[in-house]
C-alpha cells in the first residue's frame, strides 16, 4: 500500500507503518485496544467446522499480540441464490461456539450477498501497553517455540483430492479449529521477546517477517518441527497447494538449506497454514520450561524448533 497517506495519531502503538498481526491503540497508560479482522473462503466442507476455524483464525491475531480478545463482529458473504440458508446458520453457529470458548462476546456483524461463501470476524481485545508482543524484538540466543504442527495446507489439498481418511480430516480440522488461547495465556508467564502466528505465508514466511530489520539470523532444526504425520507422505505424492510454491519463490533467497533435504520436507516449511500456531521467541533459559508448561496445558505439539543467531544475518539456516 505504498504511496497512500494514512492518518496518524500518537496513540497508535502498532499501526500500518510496520505491519503486524493486529493494530494496537492506546486508551490510557494501562490499557490499549487490539483490533484485527480476517475472513476467507471455506477451507473444509463442513460449514460448522468452517465457522469454528474462521473464528479461531480471526482470534489468533489478538493472541499473537499477547492480548486477550473481548468482543467480535461477524463478517459474512453469502450466495443466497444457490446455497441454503441453513448452511449459513451452521457456519455462524461454529463461529459462535468458538467465540464463546474464547470468552468473547459477539456484538453483531454484517452480511452481503456474494458469489461465494466467505466468513470471518473482526475482533477487539485488550492489552497492557507495556506488554504488547509484536513480530519485532528478537534477541540473539532466543529459542523459537512453535505451538501447532505444520502441514495443514498439504493435508487440506489431499482432502480435496479424496486421499485422506475421515480420521485424518477430523484430525487436521481439530488442529485448525484449536484456539491459540492457551498458548497465549501460558507465554505471558515467560520472558517472551516476540511472537506471531503462522498462517498463509508458511513457517519460513512468518519467520522472515520476524527476522527482517533485526540484523540477526535464524537457525531452524528440521527434525524438531512438529508436523502432521501424514503431511510428508501427501507432499511426496504431489498434494501441494499453489501457495507453497509462491511462498518458496518469494523467500527462497533468504533460506540456506542443503539441496539434499527431502523435497516433501521442503514443502512443509513453506506450506501455507490455516489458523496455524504461535511462533514464540523466548529467552533461552526459559524455553524448555515454556514448552513443558504448554504441553502440560494441552498444547501437545509445542516444540523448540530453532534459535536466533547473530551470524549470518538475514538468513534462515535450515539444518
Amino acid at each position: 500500500m505504498c504511496g497512500l497517506d494514512f492518518p496518524t495519531d500518537p496513540n497508535v502503538l502498532v499501526g500500518l507503518s510496520r505491519a503486524d498481526d493486529a493494530g494496537v491503540y492506546k486508551i490510557s497508560d494501562d490499557l490499549a485496544l487490539i483490533q484485527t479482522v480476517d475472513f476467507f473462503t471455506p477451507v473444509v466442507d463442513d460449514p460448522y467446522w468452517f465457522g469454528q476455524i474462521a473464528a479461531a483464525n480471526a482470534l489468533s491475531d489478538v493472541y499473537a499480540m499477547g492480548g486477550e480478545p473481548k468482543t467480535a463482529m461477524n463478517l459474512v458473504s453469502f450466495p443466497l441464490k444457490r446455497m441454503d440458508l441453513s448452511v449459513l446458520r451452521e457456519v455462524i453457529q461454529g463461529g459462535i461456539d468458538k467465540v464463546r470458548e474464547a470468552g468473547v462476546v459477539l456484538l453483531g456483524g454484517h452480511s452481503v450477498e456474494d458469489d461465494e461463501l466467505k466468513y470471518g470476524l473482526s475482533v477487539t481485545g485488550f492489552i497492557h501497553p507495556n506488554r504488547i508482543l509484536t513480530k519485532q524484538g528478537l534477541n540473539v540466543g532466543d529459542r523459537l517455540v512453535l505451538t501447532k504442527p505444520l502441514g495443514t495446507g498439504i493435508v487440506n489439498t489431499a482432502i480435496k483430492g479424496n486421499l485422506a481418511s475421515g480420521e485424518i480430516t477430523r484430525k487436521v480440522t481439530a488442529i485448525m479449529a484449536a484456539l491459540n488461547r492457551t498458548a497465549a495465556t501460558v507465554m505471558r508467564e515467560y520472558p517472551v521477546h516476540a511472537c506471531t502466528d503462522i498462517t498463509g505465508f508458511g513457517l519460513i514466511g512468518h519467520l522472515a517477517e520476524m527476522m527482517q530489520g533485526t540484523g540477526l539470523g535464524l537457525k531452524i532444526i528440521l527434525e524438531k518441527l512438529p508436523i502432521i504425520d501424514v503431511a510428508l507422505g501427501f507432499a511426496a505424492m504431489g498434494m501441494v497447494p499453489g501457495g507453497t510454491h509462491k511462498n518458496r519463490s518469494f523467500r527462497a533467497h533468504m533460506v540456506d538449506m542443503d539441496e539434499g533435504v527431502d523435497p516433501a520436507m521442503q514443502d512443509i516449511i513453506f506450506d501455507p497454514q490455516t489458523s496455524g500456531g504461535l511462533c514464540i521467541a523466548v529467552a533461552p533459559t526459559s524455553a524448555e520450561g515454556l514448552v513443558d508448561h504448554l504441553q502440560s496445558e494441552g498444547v501437545e505439539h509445542a516444540a523448540i524448533i530453532g534459535e536466533v543467531v547473530d551470524y549470518p544475518a538475514g538468513i534462515i539456516q535450515v539444518v
Binding site: M237, G238, M239, G242
Partner: peptide, 14 residues
C-alpha cells in the same frame, strides 16, 4: 509451470 510439473511427476511416481 514448474510446481505443477513437479507435483504431477511426484503423484504419478507414487
Amino acid at each position: 509451470n514448474e510446481p505443477a510439473r513437479q507435483n504431477v511427476v511426484r503423484f504419478l511416481e507414487s
